[in-house]
Design a protein around this nucleic acid. Structure first.
Length: 739
DNA sequence: TCTGTAGGCGTTTTT
DNA sequence: CGCCTACAGA
């Protein structure tokens, strides 16, 4: 312990107000520690106090600590709270997401993998563009090979830590083999563009650590204490990274709650937390089971739902608060009535109890469900904010401008070139680009260089002139903005490329709103410039750092919780938050649980955990609503109440548990398991169809199942038939033979 | 090469 | 229902 006068008395203070378990989690600083932190048990408090304890009481230098979180928002909050506890002593503690941590490492070390340190980060749509390009290179029709499906598949491989060769080795059929080849092409294209997609950030870092032990050793030495938040949501690659970083000193503290694991679809592997004690035999385990957030009724109701999961460690949360109101249940005729109920309740709460709008939150399963609620809120002038959804930086006009910036930083970036090229249009079209691409592939140069050579080698005079103009523009732009602060760089791009003039000339309301978004982009860049004035960025330019940040922020991070607005968001986005009054809407089969999850046991359990997450965000009042009728993709559909409603004991509920839901819980669970089991056993028993299965259709002949969607009588199959290509058939009517 | 329109399509959750 | 793509016409 160090005798720094400014810290005297602090250590004691850091433990005040913590319960014995929380205190143990803070004080157990050495060696592996697993903190099983149930919902509302003061997890963030433990993490922040632990960091403060390490610095303030144990004398660990701030920069020796790494704390990894899931979202930028969580990271920001945690850092802020540590600073509040310690003051300036908090200094350089590194609290960040996995992704930004990896970016930081790669920006310094990626040359060891033979790559450029000026790499660009491709987001989902960039990456989809690369997938399409890969399909083109293999002369495959995007109609029969859905690019999104392939992208998803590549993602799954990456989440599992598999590189193209690994995927190829494991391929069991032609389809998988072809997929692996496409994956290889995809990686090659990324490499040629000096680009990394989101998953590459993690995967390449893990690879780097494996291939270069001396590099790993440096980072191990730097971060003597590692903390990981939301450990239940880590995937295999993140697991590898954590183990690599902690394998020397083993001062690893992971915090999580298996009941809140809701990212399995994204490759999160719940085994990571369930097996922690096996991975580290000497691990200490602390359980935080006192809930300080919710009333007894809310907690019991949520617990009753999640208890139905079979694959679960038994756990009981103890409510510290009193019983409170029963959980509300509302049956609406349709989605409009549902919205009306929510908004009327909000109005009542504000009038009668004087609650600010910020007390209320509405959660739904999918982003598309926000609309009717928004319309109703607008009708009564209730201020609200939609959290998540379309990322600001995903808007076309914003991406256009950013493409120019990215191109200046990294001229190899083919996707940005494609974008920037025609923003605004400058007479270089498909044909020219296609030729340039061919040339680039043939001669092994970047797309930009291919374009230059194509123009030099006898393209039409017109094209030549236009390409020359483009290069002049790029060169002068590059000279001017390379070292400039991002706000100035954006201004220059808007001027010199003629993008702004192009929009102004349109003078439509749409163009007007685009210009408005660009102003917002500019304002964001100004904020960045102000925040980073005088900050040492090392060898990197402000523009480069700005682009990194832009690539990794989500819409979630920007909107801080405001006290004067109702919050609307998906149940996923709600994780980690809390609100006094919560509405969980759209509680119908097919909506929540989502139809895509209804067929598989494991997926249903994840839906149930998601429901648990949503319910446990509520502090004082929780209302679940469902609608008999709902407009979905333009047409009316009829819904039955969610099985989750039937899992809540009626004595905890205000209002009637719908009969249909009450009778569901058990049998539906068994059914899903029966189906799952049959699939694993090789397809006997009920018609349980899985991907890759061979089938015979009376008309179309023999084929392979590509995908299964929906459940029950409406279950649909996408099948690639040998003779007639890909068709979608309804299982019930198709008369398929299996085997 | 660009722009407008008609049709097809799929729609889970996100770093 | 709204987004995106493919296609036709200038």
């Amino acid at each position: 312990m160090r005798a720094d006068s400014s810290l005297e008395g602090l250590p004691k203070e850091l433990l005040e107000g913590l319960n014995p378990e929380q205190r143990a989690a803070v004080e157990t600083t050495e060696g592996p520690l697993l903190v099983l932190a149930g919902a509302g048990s003061g997890k963030t408090r433990v993490l922040t106090h632990r960091i403060a304890w390490l610095i303030g009481a144990c004398g660990i230098p701030a920069e020796g600590i790494l704390a990894v979180t899931f979202t930028n928002k969580a990271a920001g909050e945690m850092k802020e709270r540590v600073q509040k506890l310690l003051g300036p002593e908090a200094g350089d503690v590194w609290v960040a997401t996995f992704h930004s941590t990896c970016v930081r490492i790669l920006r310094r070390e990626i040359q060891h993998l033979d790559r450029s340190r000026a790499f660009v980060i491709y987001d989902e749509s960039d990456s989809l563009g690369v997938v399409k390009e890969a399909l083109r290179r293999h002369s495959l029709d995007p109609k029969s090979h859905d690019p999104r499906r392939l992208r998803w598949r590549i993602d799954q491989w990456k989440n599992a830590g598999l590189l193209p060769d690994d995927a190829g080795e494991r391929a069991e059929d032609l389809d998988a083999e072809q997929g692996a080849e496409l994956y290889a092409t995809y990686q090659r294209l990324l490499h040629e563009a000096e680009a990394l997609d989101f998953n590459d950030l993690l995967l390449q870092t893990a690879r780097l650590f494996e291939e270069r032990p001396e590099v790993l050793a440096r980072w191990q030495a730097r971060w003597q204490y590692v903390l990981v938040d939301e450990y239940q949501d880590t995937n295999r690659v993140q697991y590898r990274l954590v183990n690599q970083l902690a394998s020397g000193h083993r001062n690893l503290c992971v915090v999580g709650d298996p009941d809140q694991s809701v990212y399995g679809w994204r490759g999160a592997d719940i085994r990571n937390i369930l097996d922690f004690e096996r991975d580290f035999e000497d691990a200490k385990v602390v359980r935080l089971e006192r809930n300080y957030r919710s009333t007894q009724s809310i907690l019991s109701a949520a617990g009753a739902v999640v208890e139905n999961n079979r694959d679960r460690k038994d756990k009981r949360m103890i409510a510290e608060r009193d019983e409170g109101d029963r959980v509300g249940l509302f049956e609406a005729r349709d989605e409009r009535e549902e919205a009306q109920h929510v908004v009327q309740s909000v109005l009542e709460g504000t009038r009668r109890e004087g609650r600010p709008h910020g007390h209320f939150a509405v959660f739904y399963r999918t982003n598309a469900q926000s609309r009717p609620i928004e319309e109703e809120l607008l009708k009564y002038d209730v201020p609200y904010v939609v959290v998540g959804g379309v990322r600001f930086y995903d808007r076309a006009e914003v991406k256009d401008v950013l493409a120019w910036l990215r191109l200046v930083v990294n001229p190899a970036d083919a996707m940005s070139l494609r974008r920037a090229l025609n923003a605004p249009p400058r007479g270089i079209g498909k044909t020219t680009l296609g030729r340039a691409e061919e040339l680039a592939a043939r001669e092994g140069v970047t797309l930009l260089e291919g374009l230059r050579r194509h123009a030099a080698e006898g393209a039409a005079a017109r094209t030549q002139a236009r390409v020359r103009e483009l290069f002049q523009l790029l060169e002068s732009l590059s000279r001017e903005i390379r070292e400039a602060p991002p706000d100035e760089a954006i201004t220059r791009v808007l001027e010199h490329t003629g993008y702004l003039r192009h929009l102004e000339r349109e003078s439509t309301p749409e163009a007007e709103s685009r210009i408005e978004n660009l102003r917002e982009l500019l304002a964001g860049a100004e904020d960045f410039a102000v925040a980073n004035r005088g900050v040492d960025l090392g060898e990197r330019t402000p523009l480069e750092v700005f682009l990194d940040q832009v690539a990794l922020v989500t819409d979630l991070d920007g909107h801080e919780s405001r006290s004067d607005r109702v919050s609307l968001m998906t149940a996923h986005s709600a994780k980690g938050l809390e609100f006094p009054v919560v509405f969980l809407v759209g509680m119908e089969e097919g909506v929540f649980p989502h139809a895509a999850a209804s067929r598989e046991g494991r997926a249903i359990e994840e839906e149930r955990r998601l429901c648990y997450v949503g319910m446990t965000r509520a502090m004082e009042r929780l209302t679940l609503t469902w609608a008999r009728e709902r407009r979905r993709y333009g047409s009316r559909t009829f819904g039955v109440p969610s099985r989750f409603l039937g899992e809540i004991p009626s004595e905890l509920v205000e209002g009637d548990v719908p009969e249909e839901a009450a009778s569901r819980g058990e049998p539906s669970l068994d059914y899903s398991y029966a189906q799952d089991g049959a699939a694993e056993a090789g397809g006997e028993g009920l018609t349980s169809v899985v991907r890759g299965m061979r089938v015979r259709h009376p008309i179309f002949g023999v084929g392979t199942v590509l995908d299964v969607s929906g459940s029950g009588p409406r279950q649909k199959l996408r099948i690639r038939f040998e003779r007639v290509g890909v068709k979608t058939v309804v299982l019930r009517y198709a008369n398929l033979e299996f085997g």
